[in-house]
Design a protein around this nucleic acid. Structure first.
Lengths: 205, 205
DNA sequence: GGAAGGACCGTATAAATATACGGTATGCTC
DNA sequence: GAGCATACCGTATATTTATACGGTCCTTCC
């Protein structure tokens, strides 16, 4: 479908976008291929557009758009905010100091693009019954109301912990999922920081 | 660190890049926020650059670069190839029919950009002891040799299963991690399809 | 009360940028 | 051999684009 030359140019555009974050200008393509004239590039771009590989917006700079770019349009950068205790509550949690961020597929994790999503690394094993292990990254959606049964990051008495949110006799309680921990934590003042949306575990080398 | 306004503008730049594939021009930012002057945008961009959120290349159009862009340059599309049995081996596995693909951070999962990585959805609970549950997505790296202790997707007698690869008396065996399953599966002919690199679980709504 | 930073406006402008126009040359095909 | 697509060149140019300069108004902080 594409000629050899057209394919070379398309590959360069892809590479440029992946590395620089933006598509190249006509002049940059011209330089890469050592063309003497920008018109040569223009010709190729016309061909690529006709064949549907790229789109262009008339009258703007750096106006090349890859036709299949929308594939990764649903990505959001989820900040990794620190460590959360799945065990006894600890104060060393949920700081607002983004060390790092994870590019995640918002649709896969059911994350609202508008709401604040964040990730925390789990320390402790109080949630092993729910398959959440020490070292896992939990993905949480901030700013919402949990449904009983949800796993939540909760702030109780100034300390944050990961527990299951359930109702007992009309009152919300936080429940661990490990027989070695107290099953129920009575809650006086409860602030939900985030609702569990998923987790990521990576094999340790 | 960033002011409210600076953050709004940074978010717009991020969103524009995610949706359009390129960062916005000064004029596009100006229009989005209904500023009467491009100088206002310039002021904000200066502040964002000073604070390290963006970088700019002098003398070019559409020259905003997100400082943390390189992080998402490491994304690879990992095909979701089907379902794998974590239980008794089944023939319905590892088909070469990509239904879907997952954009994943290659560095996070330790995936080689060159090698073939793939994902499978887990059916069964023979690996719950390793924290792998029914419905999880396991990320596997194809084409390598497992180290004893690795979790692998293995093809035995034409059927695929997810098990831990260990050595017993000098011979490789596949081990389930659930007392309800036979602990060791003697292996006559063993083909490793992939080595476990991580998993993704999403909360079911 | 002055200094500093933030948030804007209006205008001006050099440089970057995409593209049009008119060429040449080559290979393919009907 | 005419017609057509591809692959290039050189030049010209209307726009786009980023940014500089000189302002105003406000809040915060010492």
């Amino acid at each position: 479908m594409l000629t050899t030359r057209q394919n070379e140019i398309l590959q360069f555009i892809r590479r440029h976008q992946a590395e620089q974050g933006v598509t190249p200008t006509v002049a940059e393509i011209q330089k890469e291929f050592s063309f003497s004239s920008p018109a040569t590039v223009s010709d190729h771009l016309q061909a690529l557009e006709r064949k549907g590989s790229i789109r262009r917006q008339a009258g703007t700079a750096r106006n090349i758009r890859l036709a299949d770019f929308s594939r990764s349009a649903d990505l959001i950068n989820v900040p990794l905010l620190g460590v959360i205790a799945a065990g006894f509550p600890t104060a060393t949690a949920a700081e607002a100091r983004p060390e790092e961020s994870l590019p995640l597929d918002a649709a896969l994790f059911g994350l609202a693009r508008t709401g604040r999503a964040f990730a925390l690394r789990v320390r402790g094993d109080s949630m092993v019954g729910a398959g959440i292990h020490d070292g896992d990254l939990v993905i949480l959606q901030g700013g919402g109301s949990p449904v009983p049964g949800d796993i939540v990051a909760a702030l109780i008495d100034g300390e944050t912990t990961l527990k299951r949110y359930v109702m007992r006799r009309g009152k919300p309680v936080l429940q661990a999922e490990n027989p070695q921990y107290p099953e129920l934590i009575p809650v006086e003042e409860l602030m939900i920081q985030g609702i569990f949306r998923g987790l990521i575990r990576t094999a340790r080398p």
